[in-house]
Amino acid sequence: MFLSINSMKQVGGLQWPCSRLTEFKFVHESPPPPTPTESPPTQSRPPPPTPSLPPRATPSLTTPPSPPPPPTWYPSPPSKPKKLKCKNKNYPKCYTSEHACPASCPGQCEVDCVSCKPVCKCDMPGAVCQDPRFIGADGITFYFHGKKDKDFCLVSDNNLHINGHFIGKRNKNMGRDFTWVQSIGVLFDNHKLQISAQKTSSWDDAIDRISLTYDGKSIILPETEGAKWEYSRTSITRTQDTNDVVVEVKNLFKITAKVVPITKEESRVHNYGTFSEDCFAHLDLKFKFFSLSNEVDGVLGQTYRNDYVSKVKMGVLMPVMGGDSKFMSTNSFAIDCFVAKFKGSAHVAGSSLSLGLPSLMCQSGLNGQGVICKR
Rank of each mutant, 00 (worst) to 15 (best):
D149L: 12
S201I: 04
A197N: 05
K83T: 09
Y91F: 13
P319R: 05
T330D: 15
D123C: 05
R20P: 01
G185K: 06
C105E: 06
K121S: 06
I207P: 04
N158D: 15
F166V: 03
L353W: 11
K121E: 09
N331D: 15
V260Q: 02
T274N: 00
E223I: 04
L317R: 12
M328H: 12
P51Q: 12
G322Y: 11
I372N: 08
T263R: 04
L84N: 03
K148M: 12
R133T: 09
D177H: 09
T263F: 05
P71I: 03
Y74E: 13
Y308W: 07
I262M: 06
Y95G: 01
K25I: 15
V247H: 05
H161Y: 11
D149C: 11
F327P: 02
C109V: 05
T37Q: 15
P78M: 01
N173D: 11
T263Y: 04
A100W: 07
C122P: 00
N294D: 15
Y308I: 05
K286G: 08
T274S: 01
G226Q: 01
P32M: 08
L154I: 12
I184Q: 00
D324A: 13
A281F: 02
Q10T: 15
C122D: 10
P31M: 08
P41H: 07
N367V: 06
I262Y: 01
G365P: 02
A197K: 01
G216M: 05
P65F: 10
C101Q: 02
F290I: 07
Q363C: 05
S76A: 15
P68R: 11
A103T: 14
Q182R: 13
A103S: 15
M318G: 05
L53S: 14
T63S: 10
M361Y: 09
D112C: 04
H165W: 02
N190Q: 10
E29S: 11
C86R: 02
H165M: 06
S76Y: 11
L3K: 13
S4Y: 15
T22H: 12
V186F: 00
N367F: 07
A137H: 03
T330Y: 11
E248Q: 13
T200Y: 00
N190M: 08
F26D: 12
P261M: 05
I236L: 08
Q363Y: 03
A197I: 02
T22N: 09
P102A: 06
F152S: 04
N367G: 07
R375V: 07
S76F: 09
E38K: 15
D215V: 07
C279P: 00
A340R: 10
T63W: 03
C101P: 02
H145T: 13
Q369E: 09
F178S: 00
C101H: 03
P55K: 08
P125T: 00
T141W: 01
S291N: 14
L360S: 12
D307R: 08
I220S: 14
L212F: 07
P33N: 09
N173I: 02
G368M: 03
